[in-house]
């Protein structure tokens, strides 16, 4: 668990100073003595895509529900768009969109009727046909708009839910696992649209179990067992997980033990071999950008022929596992 200071001093490169859409301090919620969310500190700047990643039961949905004002926190502070969620006024709610984890629209209504229903809930004017058609185009449901929802697939229902969430053009979107159960192509399309929303000034708070989706986010919060382990940029997460950049080096000649030791002990690189075969090395270095040309030079000087030196990006699944392990190791001392 990161403490307050650690989070507040998190280095977020290339992000200009913007007002916070979400701010939590020591946010805690327990159910029947079991802590679901434990002292979460989090700042989400306006206009960012914030990924909230963690396994099932890690406290993601509870956090979203606290941020939506569906739960009252047991302890800590929350501010969403400058207001306390449990005191949200109608105006605050009109600025927020919420996509719940489960489908909650009406199976006995058509796709179109469900869209209309949600639009009316948010007080969208009756002259909204164009808007609804555009949203249905986005989720590729326009052709199916006269179908009863009970007759469309689970993926289509998910897409409908997303379209319904966007119907009132909210400033801040809470999307609880929006891509769950959706095929990879449409998932990519969703994330493209999320990015488009971001470009248009919307703030997105997206929970997901797909760790790979962290790459689409500006910031990622990693949840485990009710605790927010870290908040970082996707790239920062990799570095945080492994302690530096990974460089992959391939050679046509055999890389013997002596050479491996030499490379590992280079004082300029402070590298560490993560993985090694006879013809390939994976090195953990402080900075991949400076290490790569240095390594090329080093091997040339020793007349060793190398055919590739490149930065290696481990999957976010690996990054996530590494972070959890690291956290557990820290806890166990």
């Amino acid at each position: 668990m990161l403490d307050r200071e650690q989070v507040e001093t998190q280095e977020i490169p290339d992000v200009p100073e913007r007002p916070l859409a979400i701010r939590t301090r020591e946010l805690t919620k327990a159910f029947g003595g079991e802590i679901a969310v434990n002292k979460i500190n989090m700042d989400v700047p306006t206009g960012a895509v914030f990924g909230f990643i963690g396994p099932s039961g890690s406290g993601k949905t509870t956090t979203v529900r606290l941020l939506m004002g569906l739960y009252e926190p047991d302890d800590g502070e929350i501010s969403v768009l400058g207001a306390r969620p449990s005191n949200f006024k109608r105006h605050d709610r009109e600025r927020i969109g919420y996509l719940p984890q489960l489908f909650v629209l009406y199976p006995d209504l058509t796709v179109w009727e469900n869209m209309n229903f949600t639009a009316s809930l948010y007080g969208v004017s009756f002259w909204r046909t164009k808007l609804l058609n555009r949203l249905l185009d986005l989720v590729e449901l326009r052709e199916d708009k006269h179908k009863l929802v009970r007759n469309i697939s689970g993926g289509m229902q998910r897409r409908l839910s997303l379209a319904a969430t966007l119907v009132h053009d909210p400033d801040l979107l809470f999307l609880d696992e929006p891509t769950a159960g959706i095929d990879p192509i449409l998932r990519k399309k969703f994330w493209d649209y999320f990015k488009e929303l971001q470009v248009n000034g919307h703030t997105l708070f997206v929970t997901t179990q797909y760790v790979g989706e962290a790459a689409y986010c500006d910031f990622v919060g990693v949840m485990s067992e009710g605790q927010l382990l870290t908040v970082n940029t996707p790239e920062g997460l990799r570095r945080e997980a492994y302690g530096g950049d990974i460089v992959k080096l391939g050679s046509t000649e055999r890389i013997d033990y002596t050479l491996r030791q030499e490379v590992q002990n280079l004082p300029e690189l402070k590298s560490r071999i993560l993985n090694a075969t006879d013809y390939e090395l994976q090195l953990l270095v402080d900075d991949g950008a400076t290490a790569t040309p240095y390594l090329v030079e080093y091997f040339r000087d020793r007349r060793k022929s190398i055919n590739s030196v490149e930065s290696f990006f481990p999957s976010y699944d690996d990054v996530f596992v590494k972070l959890i392990e690291k956290h557990r190791n820290n806890e166990n001392g």
Binding site: G69, L70, R90, I96, P100, V104, Y106, L121, G123
Partner: peptide, 14 residues
């Protein structure tokens, strides 16, 4: 039962 009450709670409807 259907969970739509949650939708109402998070929307501006009173």
């Amino acid at each position: 039962r259907a969970g739509t009450m949650e939708l109402f709670k998070t929307s501006p409807i009173s």
